[in-house]
Design a protein around this nucleic acid. Structure first.
Lengths: 340, 340
DNA sequence: CGCGAATATGTTTACGTAAACACATTGCAC
DNA sequence: GTGCAATGTGTTTACGTAAACATATTCGCG
């Protein structure tokens, strides 16, 4: 058996030629059996599969990808792994790719544009069938290399802006506006905001700015805000809420950048015996499933994470894409709970 | 410029030869510059880098991997993406691989051994430098193909059993025993258990069985248990707790398969005005960070998720591994909170 | 100044697979 | 039973890179 050194181990690995020899057929026939393409008789197929199993051969999908210009890969950038949101998006992507025998190869940008740029270069070195990137804002270098290579790019989670090619998500401006309108309609007039990630989360910033605009237009005001350096978490939300409520004239309602922070706020209230929304109203963002387990249902905006991942992956797998940029709106919806 | 069709797009992609032509050097020199190996003068390096940038060339790491038997890949199987635990493990793995310019290629097994087996076959088709698998229990076919290919395998999260090669984690039997001993010492005598994933989580099962043994040995007993079909969540934990506490003679303490379930139990108690541990004691597993934001600190076992991922990845990257199976204990620790 | 080591670059070839093309054989409609 | 499409298999070649080997050139040092 022709075996060669490989770094998979220090053992020698069999190839299609070895399988072919054992099965008494040509290498090309083995290739066809492995991929399930072309015409193969039942007998030969059984022969080949048996031979492969016997010598422990596993199809090498990267070797031929070279010759066929086609690697079964999609490159994915997520801003963080700390937030369930993006693991759910990944799940959606993974579900779609799994069905098609592709794999996501991913990297984490930590919301830093230059890290994202480096990641994209790295991911392109895999010659992926496409890329999935968060948001619509990217560095110039990234846009340039993406356009030079002509790789198909799906941008996700945002539709407020101009996509490189296609984007899948919803308007964060609308989301922020809707929440502000809801709270104003409920009669609240003084607000606080809690953000995280040093304000690098541009989509959270869009929501905040839209929220602020509506609040001001209504003659109400934002009396305080807390931006944290670290990733968002329930703990951060709890501490922020504690700080905000200790102020001389605390806000009547707090808008949090996401549900983890908001849930932390609720925890603070529970621990301190404060009533929501009696003492303070709380609003989150994302509609994560754990909210339904909390003692009080938090008002939030429910975002379709899984569906967005699915839609982006499905678009990348389509044989041919519309060359014109287009936006696919996958709606987020305000869900009124018991905290506002 | 010699460009060829590629499925990255319908555009033609430049190769090292194109860069070489533009830079006025040989393809091999371009290769050396791209990889940063061998001797290259400053001038030539600048030339090559400039030429590459000019024509938008991105290094193709898979083409050469073929010839050098070395793909910059580690295959990773996680049982679920629903639980923060495994995204944290992935983070640890990713952190280590990033430093070395490798990428994880992962799949989700949903705790099903046959899915894991399929995944491993698929991941092996990438000729990875190594595999990271959850737990020590695998199908015979998986063990066979792994041994035939000689790929290096790191098993993680468990040390109760015989590793294929090396495993990184802690003893779930010890964890279950320790929790039982703690609760017994606190004076509780009747217990309930809440599990999920249809009992497919073998490590949770190990904890439960060890827990049960200690409880019985102490003359106490487990009076009820709830196993859920679905993935664990706060909501499931809340509903399970509700059910358990409605029984005629409810348990004095509930052991949950993980923190999400336990937190759901706490939420139920808060919503119902029940005291912990006065009315019922609660214990979880994992020590996820969100626990610190809850109104009461839940007793749990803190597991070193990130470190386990890191250790496994580092071991895979080592030039040569000890051929003998060995276990690397990365300790989990019981943390007593306010709920027991 | 001469000679070996270090530096710098090029040429040839191998990698394992899949496309393209070629050639049998079978089935079946007329 | 003849012809042509469908079925089944083989041969040659291309893919883009990196290892192995070869060859200049420069440098340091006695």
């Amino acid at each position: 058996m022709t075996k060669r050194r490989t770094s998979m181990s220090e053992k020698l690995q069999p190839t299609m030629h070895d399988v072919a020899r054992v099965a008494g057929v040509s290498q090309m026939t083995v290739s066809r059996v492995m991929r399930g393409t072309g015409y193969i008789s039942k007998d030969v197929r059984k022969q080949v599969v048996g031979a492969a199993r016997e010598i422990g051969y596993v199809h090498n999908r990267l070797a031929g990808g070279n010759a066929s210009y086609d690697n079964p890969i999609v490159g994915v950038v997520v801003p963080t792994m700390q937030n369930r949101v993006f693991t759910e998006v990944l799940s959606g992507i993974n579900a779609t790719l799994d069905e098609s025998g592709l794999r996501p190869v991913f990297g984490v940008s930590e919301y830093a544009p230059n890290v994202e740029e480096d990641l994209v270069f790295d991911l392109l070195s895999w010659r992926p069938r496409g890329l999935i990137l968060p948001g619509l804002e990217h560095t110039d270098s990234l846009r340039k290399i993406v356009s030079q290579t002509g790789v198909r790019v799906a941008e996700i989670m945002d539709t407020d802006g101009d996509p490189i090619s296609s984007c899948f998500g919803f308007s964060h401006i609308n989301a922020g506006e809707d929440m502000a309108k809801h709270l104003i309609a409920r009669g609240y007039r003084t607000f606080a905001y809690v953000g995280s990630h040093r304000g690098l989360d541009l989509r959270a910033t869009k929501r905040y700015e839209a929220f602020e605009r509506i609040v001001r237009d209504a003659g109400a005001q934002i009396v305080a805000h807390e931006f944290y350096e670290v990733a968002s978490s329930m703990d951060v939300g709890r501490r922020a809420t504690n700080l905000l409520l200790q102020k001389e004239t605390p806000a009547e309602a707090i808008y949090f950048a996401n549900d983890d922070l908001a849930a932390g706020g609720l925890m603070h209230c529970l621990a301190e015996g404060l009533d929501t929304p009696g003492d303070v109203a709380l609003a989150g963002f994302n509609g994560l499933s754990f909210l339904s387990a909390l003692p009080r249902m938090i008002t939030t905006t429910v975002t379709p994470r899984f569906d967005i991942g699915r839609a982006a992956a499905e678009w990348l797998l389509q044989p041919k894409a519309d060359p014109n940029p287009n936006k696919v709106e996958i709606a987020a919806e305000l869900r009124v709970g018991q905290t506002t």
